[in-house]
Design a protein around this nucleic acid. Structure first.
Lengths: 152, 152
DNA sequence: AAGTATTAAGACTATTATATCTTAATATAG
DNA sequence: CTATATTAAGATATAATAGTCTTAATACTT
């Protein structure tokens, strides 16, 4: 049960893009990678995936970069995650005990079921707009820190 | 947020051992690996860790094998997991959103906090005896299936 | 048209997790 | 004492993930 770094980086970049890109201008990947401390070439490849999935648009050359291809209230976290990790495994019991969620052996079963449903609903309902708004209201804005003591 | 396969295999083998080993006889690793569909040599190395941690005892030669080194009600899941994955990362936000659990950006924050506490408490309180008992009362006993459509 | 800034694409490398193979050590049985 | 069964240990192999580097394509600027 976890997302790949690719997905996490893709999420973070998309959120930052949402916050910066209100004016429909392109933002360079270099800017994003600097701000988020993500290796440039690595982020480039990830964002290429999101462009192919038509979540982002890109433009080469001077003044080029990437930007959202749709209004941020029409892009869910699930859109992003499933474009990057084609088969993401966020929903397996963290203890890997067989049958968790179906049978009664795993003691976490009930808690896991509940949490799983919330995760499922959250990622398919929450949009970039939502997250971006939250972030703006947050004094202690982790998205603009330059040091990396973040979760990974 | 996830356990390594090593930890999961170690857990499964320990549970099976608990169920088989009431009579204090040694069980061969081959038997365990066959029953659980875990590669023999791989399981051997994992169980060596558990032996070093004095959770299991082992004996070489004919009639050798492994067995619990303590009564199963004195071995918690956490004992096993921390012996195998010295630094297990079960407690990071599955979305890797920065600051989850401390700040308010991640929408899962509250749910994640709750779940995390339950996981923490569970793995440090539940013993092999508990799990083994559950398993015995379970008709559909996944631990003795030979095919592997289990969580991983 | 030339130069420059930028993404696209793909090859390459590094790291970690998972798995296998080989040999050594040890205990038992005969 | 010899043969055999078993774990111990360590070297090697494979696969997945993460990250880097190089070159190509493209778009803008002058």
């Amino acid at each position: 049960m976890h997302l790949s770094k690719s997905s996490i980086y893709g999420l973070r970049a998309s959120i930052l893009l949402t916050k910066m890109g209100g004016d429909k201008n392109y933002v360079t990947i270099r800017e994003l990678s600097d701000e988020l401390n993500i290796p440039f070439h690595f982020l480039t490849k990830i964002l290429q995936e999101l462009s192919k999935a038509e979540i982002l648009e890109s433009l080469r050359g001077p003044n080029g970069g990437v930007r959202l291809a749709k209004p941020p209230n029409r892009i869910t976290l699930k859109d992003i995650v499933t474009s990057i990790d084609v088969k993401y495994d966020i929903l397996n019991c963290p203890l890997g005990l067989p049958g968790c969620g179906e049978h009664s052996l795993c003691p976490l079963q009930q808690d896991w079921q509940n949490f799983k449903l919330k995760v499922e609903r959250m990622i398919s309902e929450v949009t970039l707009e939502d997250l971006s708004a939250r972030s703006k209201n947050n004094d202690n804005d982790m998205y603009h820190r330059t040091h990396n003591h973040l979760n990974a």
